[in-house]
Write a protein that binds this DNA or RNA. Sequence first.
DNA 1: GACGGATGGTTGAGCCTGTCAACCATTGCC
DNA 2: GGCAATGGTTGACAGGCTCAACCATCCGTC
Lengths: 142, 142
Amino acid sequence: MAEAVKRRAPAQEAWELLGKLFGETRHRIVRVSAEFGLTPPQLFALRTLEPDEPVPMRALATALHCDSSNVTGLVDGLEAQGLVERRGAEHDRRVRMLVVTEHGAQVRSRLIEVMREVPPQLASLSAEDQRALRDVLRRALG
Amino acid sequence: MAEAVKRRAPAQEAWELLGKLFGETRHRIVRVSAEFGLTPPQLFALRTLEPDEPVPMRALATALHCDSSNVTGLVDGLEAQGLVERRGAEHDRRVRMLVVTEHGAQVRSRLIEVMREVPPQLASLSAEDQRALRDVLRRALG
DNA sequence: GACGGATGGTTGAGCCTGTCAACCATTGCC
DNA sequence: GGCAATGGTTGACAGGCTCAACCATCCGTC
């Protein structure tokens, strides 16, 4: 390999390009959270909670990869806005089940819808490119 | 369109798959930052600063999309570790130029190298898939 | 050349996340 | 019944981030 142009592996370049998309996405999350009157961690918490399927706080903590004491605060915020409720579990009086309220379910579904919006850079790809991207990502992450 | 299977557009599915990759990357950033004794914002700050090209703090603030008072704290941390230096600018005595130290440049380049490491999901793709991914992303983000 | 507005940077208050240690109530096992 | 383990809360602490206030300095204008 002569000392010519330093060749980057294709995956290398792809990863760098994805880095740009990541950066923009971070800002997007902050913006969307604010639109819903939430902080980003609160948004992730609400998105994680399935309506119709109450879970103990511990489960949310592990799902969010954080400490139990952390979710206490997050749930405090969500509960203050009437998005979730703490409810005692009948089989174990230590645990508190998290129940998404009616209002919380509505906010959550709108929120998920907005988060699912494909960013313009991807949306403007040709149909073939979109399929190709999906197929490659399926093989990588499916 | 019969009420059959709800079809997702290819870009839609691709975006959701990227969401998974994003989540894992967030954790990775936290981990790498800790390895270098930095916090994630400090890591981004150091990565942004080019050695051999001192910039005023204001420039770093805009590059990081945050407030000036914020970078004051970040630079305090980096300076405490001897990674960057504040140096007065001769043409304007208000501005403080940020200079990456010798040590800072070393840490920075190691750090960038680690961050550039292609995650295993992408690295394990076939050569064709890697090229296809790169080409599509070039068209989307180039 | 002095004045007044704009600019770069710091400080402090305030709110948020996130971790850790300590604690309480409860459970389940021996 | 005793006792370790568990779920959740609280408080302390380290940060990030924004805003308002402030100081020093610059610069255009009169």
